[in-house]
Amino acid sequence: MSRLTRRNFLQVSAGLVALSGVAATPSTAETSLDEETLATLIDCTRCDGCVDYDVPLCVAACRERALSRIPDPVNPIPPLFPRGMIEDWSTRKDVYDRLTPYTQLFVQRADIPEDGGIRTVYLPRRCMHCDNPPCATLCPFTANHKYPDGSVVIDPDLCFGGAKCRSVCPWSIPQRQSGVGIYLEIMPTLAGNGVMFKCDLCHDRLLNKQLPLCVEACPRDAMVIGLRRDIIKEAERRAAATGGYLYGLTENGGTGTIYLSPVPFEEINKVVEKGPGRPHFDKVSRRPARASLMETSVLMSPVIGMGAGLTAAMLAVRNRGIKKGGGESDD
């Protein structure tokens, strides 16, 4: 596959379904392997930030979906003990220049000085859908999970809004809406603080063989989605053809979102506005590190304990001269 368009993405999906012999429902999706993991290429050589529109079309489409999925918070939002860290975006739903629960995709603008002038690059920003998403693996309630299609999805019915996912995300992507969610039913002042929201790659639409809304909405085909291996090839092909630069291939150990830019990301990172809800373009090494010594040790510890127990028991038997008979054990 040399070029991935919306249409042949659907063909790929249909082919996968045919190969597996089952419909792509949530239950069957869980049993499948990385073969069907998807990735998105965001081609910033094509994105023009929808400057002719009030709101970029991808952002508007994404926002419509968010508005339909986020319930109104309770009024008043319960005070939080002991800190009053309430984050209420329901009164600021029209903020488009950063990530919020309602704006899970926004277009970042980078004005890069070039040859005495300014070169502007537009970069749609949202969850990267990491290969090893710490937001999901470290969620204390598994309210956040990476599915075989590659999407990292927060279940709003399980999320307590503690924002651990935002703390461990290299880009601090998830955003909190206080006053909604399951925490209200338990100990609203003591535990939890709402629900975390972020792009879920339109997971439900993918299961129905539909494109993510942002991909579908883009008037310039700046976003393409397809099988991970195909998208990587396509990204590298375009980068080679245009002399462009890629971001997301290796960040945090690899992600499902690859940016193609005509200027180096170091330059972009210098000029984009960064801060809460405005992610950087830094280099990011994977955390927790893959096959870290600690994790490997944990997985090996049963074997170590077993070996030590066996050895010590054999030594004890030899030292004591005990001959263990079949009837002795009262286990």
Partner: peptide, 9 residues
């Protein structure tokens, strides 16, 4: 694991 295997054996 040491406990289980040592005392078990």
């Amino acid at each position: 694991f040491f406990h289980v295997f040592y005392h078990g054996l």
